[in-house]
Design a binder for these strands. Structure first.
Lengths: 130, 130
DNA sequence: CTGCATCCCGAGTGATACTG
DNA sequence: CAGTATCACTCGGGATGCAG
């Protein structure tokens, strides 16, 4: 049983969902992990270019945080010009299937959600129309 | 094959991961869904109390958005004082297993992540110490 | 009890310029 | 090429007060 609600698993950092949300709830982490899972090993500029609308700063920050948590491996080549390659660690790879489950769910159900939302808005409008 | 990166699945709203992130990347949606999946049917104040540190405003806003997207069913009882009950729709329930997968992953690996992060910080400090 | 409106702060994010 | 540094801003979300 995981019903220990009286013991406050819903409050604070002990709740596993909160931990996951805390770590991956930002704008880019999940997306970068998923991208690396497809492409294997990528350079900084390749990631930036593929995602398209991420700023250099946010890419740096996000990659650094992923590296610090051991989800991504960073390999630096001190050449001229410098080259850096990123790839998923085993830990990072172990997260990928779960992300893809979510993505698949989204692909199946997001249309329904958007329809629901649209109808809900219309219903609200007709209500205030009185 | 889902490798159509040249076709820009990574840019804009077409990427399923972005859609999911867009919808569920906020602070409370996932947590509320998971809570309702445990408890079945809850009143507004019960949710507020169980979560503990959510403001009334954010609970209202989040529940309203979940309702609008058809993930949660809202039942209003026009009594005095009023009573409102929330429960997951079928659509909402269909998301639960995926959330629990993520939570389980977190429970297994979050300790490792936090250790990694700690060691990374220490390594950075010793570097700037020179 | 439940929910809406208003005000407001600050973390997270982006734009820009600079460095090795 | 791959960052770092700085500034500016948006906007998520918290506090408070009011209403049905």
């Amino acid at each position: 049983m995981s019903r220990k609600i009286g013991q406050k698993i819903w409050i604070g950092g002990t709740c596993p969902i909160r931990q996951v949300l805390d770590r991956f709830g930002d704008k880019w982490s999940i997306l970068i992990i998923e991208l690396l899972s497809h492409e294997g090993k990528l350079r900084f500029s390749e990631i930036a270019h593929t995602i398209g609308d991420i700023s250099q700063k946010m890419l740096t920050v996000t990659l650094r945080s992923l590296e610090s948590d051991g989800l991504v491996i960073r390999q630096f080549f001190p050449e001229i010009p410098p080259r850096v390659e990123y790839e998923l660690s085993e830990l990072g790879k172990s997260l990928v299937p779960h992300i893809q489950q979510l993505a698949a769910w989204g692909q199946t159900n997001m249309d329904t959600i958007l329809e629901n939302r649209k109808r809900f808005e219309e219903k609200q409008q007709s209500r205030t129309a009185y």
